[in-house]
C-alpha cells in the first residue's frame, strides 16, 4: 500500500515536471506561444488544404493537359502559361541554418494564362522553423508580359511582382540585395515583426537552341518604404530535355519526359553598395519530370557558394496544369465560353 502511494506520488510529480517543461522551455514558452504554434499549424493546414481543394476542383471540372514545364525553380524562361489554362503548384524548400534552427518553407502558386502574351500568378507563402513555430508569411502577386510577337535571338519578358511578406518569409524564391543566411537565424517571433511591401521587377531573357534553354534574369527590387534603397540580384539557368525526339507510344519513363539542368542565383547588393560584398549565392542542379497525366514533379538540391549562404537547400515541387479553366469560370457565371 505504501508502495502504491509512493508510485502515485512519483507519477504526480513527474506529470507536474512535464507540464512545467512544456510551458517553460523549448517549443512553447508560454500559453500565448502555444496559441501561436497552433495558429501557425492552421496556416500550414490552410495552404495545404487550399492547394488540395484547388487541385480537386480543377480536376473535377477541367481536363488536365500535358505540360512541358521547365525544371527551374528560381529562374524563369520566356514561356508563358497557355491562354485559359490554370497551373496549380506546390513547392517546398528545406534549408539548413547555422546559428538557428533549420526550416521548411513552402508556397502555393496559382498561375493563369490570361493571353498568350500575359500570365498572372498569385503565391501564398508559409514556413515551419524546427523547434520554433509555423507561420503564414505573406502573398505575392506577379505578372509577366511578353512584348515581342515572335521568337528572336533573345526573347525578353517583363516581370512585375508586388509582395507583402513578413521578415519570417523563408521560401528564398529569389535572393536579392544583401540577403544572407544570418538574416533568418532569429526566432520566428522576432522575424515576423518585420513587414515588407516590395515591388520587384525582372527582365527575363531566354533563348532556346538545339534543345537547350538558357535563361538570364536580372532582378531589381524596391521596398516601398522610402528609406530603403533599390536592391539587385540575378538568376541564370540552363536546361535540356534528356531526349529531343518523342517516341510514338505514350509512356511515363521515356527520356523525353525528363528535363535536367542547373541554375545559379544570388544577390548583387543595393544602390548604396552594389557588388558581391555581403551577398549570398547558390548553385542548384534541377530536374523536372513531366508526366503524360498532366503532373510535373521537380527536384533541386541547392548548395551555398559562400559563407553568407545557407549551406544546403533542398527544393521540390509538384504542379498540375488544367486547360480550359477560363471557360469553366465563364460557364459558372453563365457566359458563353
Amino acid at each position: 500500500m505504501a508502495g502504491d502511494h509512493n508510485w502515485m506520488g512519483n507519477a504526480r510529480s513527474w506529470a507536474r515536471r512535464a507540464l512545467r517543461e512544456v510551458l517553460t522551455s523549448g517549443q512553447a514558452r508560454s500559453v500565448r506561444e502555444i496559441g501561436r504554434v497552433s495558429q501557425g499549424q492552421c496556416a500550414r493546414a490552410f495552404l495545404l488544404s487550399l492547394s488540395t481543394l484547388a487541385l480537386g476542383c480543377c480536376g473535377l471540372f477541367c481536363p488536365s493537359s500535358f505540360a512541358q514545364e521547365s525544371p527551374y525553380i528560381v529562374t524563369y524562361d520566356h514561356y508563358l502559361e497557355e491562354p485559359g489554362s490554370l497551373e496549380v503548384e506546390y513547392f517546398s524548400t528545406f534549408g539548413t541554418q547555422r546559428g538557428g534552427n533549420d526550416f521548411h518553407a513552402y508556397w502555393v502558386e496559382f498561375e493563369y494564362g490570361v493571353k498568350a502574351w500575359w500570365t498572372t500568378e498569385i503565391y501564398l507563402d508559409g514556413q515551419t522553423t524546427f523547434n520554433d513555430s509555423t507561420l503564414f508569411t505573406g502573398f505575392r502577386f506577379e505578372n509577366r508580359f511578353r512584348p515581342l510577337k515572335q521568337e528572336h535571338f533573345i526573347n525578353p519578358v517583363i516581370y512585375i511582382e508586388y509582395e507583402q511578406t513578413s521578415g519570417a518569409d523563408k521560401i528564398l524564391k529569389e535572393v536579392e540585395g544583401h540577403d544572407i543566411e544570418s538574416d533568418l537565424a532569429e526566432p520566428n517571433g522576432s522575424l515576423r515583426q518585420d513587414h515588407d511591401h516590395e515591388l520587384e521587377f525582372k527582365l527575363l531573357l531566354s533563348k532556346s537552341f538545339k534543345g537547350w534553354n538558357v535563361a538570364v534574369n536580372p532582378l531589381f527590387t524596391k521596398n516601398l518604404s522610402p528609406s530603403e534603397p533599390w536592391e539587385f540580384g540575378y538568376a541564370v539557368g540552363a536546361s535540356r530535355p534528356l531526349a529531343l525526339k518523342a517516341v510514338p507510344n505514350r509512356c511515363n519513363f521515356c527520356r523525353e519526359n525528363f528535363i535536367a539542368g542547373v541554375e545559379m542565383y544570388g544577390g548583387l547588393g543595393d544602390a548604396k553598395s552594389f557588388g558581391l560584398h555581403e551577398t549570398s549565392h547558390y548553385l542548384a542542379p534541377v530536374v523536372a519530370w513531366n508526366l503524360p497525366s498532366g503532373w510535373t514533379l521537380r527536384l533541386s538540391p541547392g548548395f551555398g557558394l559562400n559563407d553568407n549562404s545557407h549551406r544546403f537547400l533542398l527544393r521540390w515541387g509538384v504542379s498540375r496544369e488544367f486547360s480550359g479553366f477560363g471557360e469553366m469560370v465563364s460557364r459558372l457565371f453563365g457566359g458563353r465560353p
Binding site: 521547365s70 524562361d77 514561356y79 498568350a116 525526339k245
Partner: peptide
C-alpha cells in the same frame, strides 16, 4: 506562335518534336 491572336509559341518543344 501567333501571340497577339491567342496561339502561344511552341519553341519550348524541342525542334525534332
Amino acid at each position: 506562335g501567333i501571340v497577339r491572336h491567342g496561339m502561344p509559341d511552341w519553341s519550348k518543344v524541342p525542334e525534332p518534336e
